[in-house]
Design a protein around this nucleic acid. Structure first.
Lengths: 212, 212
DNA sequence: GCGTAACCCTACGCACGAGTAGGTATGCTC
DNA sequence: GAGCATACCTACTCGTGCGTAGGGTTACGC
């Protein structure tokens, strides 16, 4: 009809990324349930059936968002923390990369992850990622411990690593809520909590409950 | 019609508690959105309009759950950590009470809080409670610091406290997911991370980023 | 230049679940 | 035992938003 189409046709790969960008934005702003597929489609500059055609149902779309953001984050961390460095250096670099990533993707990260924690269908997805992180941190601690000829029970290691990861996620939330805060400074503060505590453990200092 | 009514009438106060019990259970199992008022009503052994009459809309009901569980938890902690004890003792008692509470209310706590974190209308409610906890922890650290004639910037204090609270919540999630785990042991592990780290900070040991 | 595949749309069906209208029975007060 | 408040029910309305049916248009290969 008109010789110039209102909006140009784009190849699938491009449109998919636009849709994912829009989805991340809308899911972040509204939360999973309050977000509507219509709004996501509109924000992506496309109609709803296209979203269904390319990315599937709402749940599948959300999972796709999680995956994209998650792997980006993991890559940022993995790229920074080379495995042959000493433990504190690795931890520091990992934290710096992590908070840097969160700082650069404030709406992306925090709200997506805050969402995913709550909604059952995605909690598992997230748990898997967290488990990978915990494993890495636990491995690092274990490595450092063995280097000192020391060893602690696997479960203690896991729980300590879990606590550290939890504290880190918590500060990521804090960072996402404080736009003026500097990621690197946050990483330093986290390091103060994590490393000074971990270092004590590495040197065999252990706290025990009073006998009362 | 029948001289014996199928189910007996109960005073409002009793029914409200039953409804709240049912609501906590169902919200925990299904999540806020997937939970239906019908299921909650059925679980409470009552019909839906009664729920609306007593506790209001679904959101109001959820807030009521949050409030009840939240104040119970706060009381458990406040009752344990007397303000005139030394810092480590207070922290230990507070943690023990906290994990004890979570252990005793596994579905209650964890899932409610996991829910509330994600859903925007309630995130504020939760943030307020968390802020109170952070304030308490920060106050405790500050108190201990001043006793040693030391002082650190308020924001650093806040962030460290935030990280500790985050780590604790994280372990609470872990505890809720591991029915066989002992609350007190979890509290001890948390103490190892929190206190050994905090103690370093209290003694003026600070980690600084490498100069590279 | 013609088939075919990829891109894209407007409109709808339909289920689900929040919230309500309108009414019944029970027990308490005086 | 009349009056009234409280406890309680069945059976609806109705908005919202996911997912789709069915059809149009552009580009690309041959």
């Amino acid at each position: 009809m008109s010789s110039v189409p209102a909006f140009k046709r784009l190849p699938r790969a491009v449109r998919e990324q636009q849709m994912l960008d829009a989805a991340v934005k809308v899911f972040s702003r509204r939360g999973f349930h309050a977000a509507s597929m219509d709004e996501i489609a509109e924000d992506a500059g496309i109609s709803k059936p296209m979203v269904y055609a390319y990315l599937g149902t709402k749940e599948e779309l959300f999972v796709a968002c999680l995956h994209r953001e998650g792997t980006r984050m993991m890559q940022a961390i993995a790229g920074a923390a080379a495995p042959d460095l000493p433990a504190d250096e690795r931890l520091w670099r990992g934290l710096k990369a992590f908070f840097g990533f969160v700082g650069a993707h404030r709406d992306g990260w925090a709200v997506l992850y805050r969402q995913a924690r709550g909604e059952q269908p995605f909690a598992g997805e997230l748990a898997t990622m967290r488990a990978r992180l915990v494993e890495v941190v636990a491995g690092m601690l274990d490595h450092a411990l063995r280097a000192e000829g020391r060893e602690i029970a696997a479960i203690d290691l896991e729980v300590v690593a879990y606590a550290l990861v939890g504290a880190t996620e918590s500060l990521a939330d804090w960072l996402a809520d404080h736009p003026e805060a500097e990621p690197e400074k946050t990483a330093t503060r986290m390091m103060n909590v994590a490393w000074l505590g971990a270092a004590q453990l590495l040197h065999g200092v252990t706290w025990r409950p009073p006998a009362d």
